[in-house]
Amino acid sequence: MTAASLRVEGVTAGYGPVRALVDVSVDVPDGAVVAVLGGNGAGKSTLLRAVSRTLAFHGGALRGGSVSFGGRRLDGLAAAELVAAGVVQVPEGRQVFARMTVADNLRAGALGARGGARGRARGGERDRAWGGARARAHRRAAALARVHGLFPVLRQRAQQRAGLLSGGEQQMLALGRALMAEPRLLLLDEPTLGLAPMAAARIADTIREINAQGTSVLLVEQNAAVALKLASSAYVLETGRVALAGPAAELAVSDEVRRRYLGVVDETAAQDAESVSTSLPRLGRWPA
């Protein structure tokens, strides 16, 4: 039950004198999709960095609280060790290796999983019996087949440089690259950012499919409409604190979330806005 659940408890983190997260607790149960919503600067990315141990790359540090996955403490590990523990992050803005081919990007994704053959309970026995190298090659081929199954375009573009892909394809590559490590928990930082609505919808479908195949997902999004449809529960961050939390369906109908993140304007506010626009005199372009 607790096998693959993420627990973030009372995390405080910041960059230099700036506190970006204050006493934040988030739970991702095994097999769930959990969304974290919030505006710019609310601390969403910082939360993911605190989990993925990459705060140091941005001059930040964890100041308090704990992060554990499947009962194992993650705070204290190096970012690279997290992959072997089964937690993989897709970084914000995709960050594919633009000068490497699509195939090499996927190879890079599998680099961290190699220690996992030893570290993980699942399949550990079998790997040892087969001998390390062969088992590793076998697992990598299986992971690659799965990624190609999810994103056939990555097979067609295998020898192309990743920098030449479209935004949507780069996001697919970033997801595929992360899946090569066979994560049990996937951390997604704004996967639909800057994508056309069609591409965003495809990514959302894929996230649902990845989750159905047994990977838990912690999803950070500004696009609350997409996130709340995908997630079973959600948290709303505001200036580094958890402002709201609950089942996604409940949050999706709550007035506050609707007004702030779903762009739904309630009646009185709409009337206010209208009355303001009529009461003010219209300005001409240049009073000549």
Binding site: A79, A80, F97, M100, D104, A108, L111, R177, A178
Partner: peptide
């Protein structure tokens, strides 16, 4: 080789490479 892939990945983007499990 895997060493080469890790090297090129780290050269291009250290943070993304670390997230892929490359030990910098």
């Amino acid at each position: 080789t895997s060493w080469g892939v890790a090297m090129r990945a780290a050269a291009e983007n250290r943070e993304a490479a670390a997230l892929m499990g490359v030990r910098l």
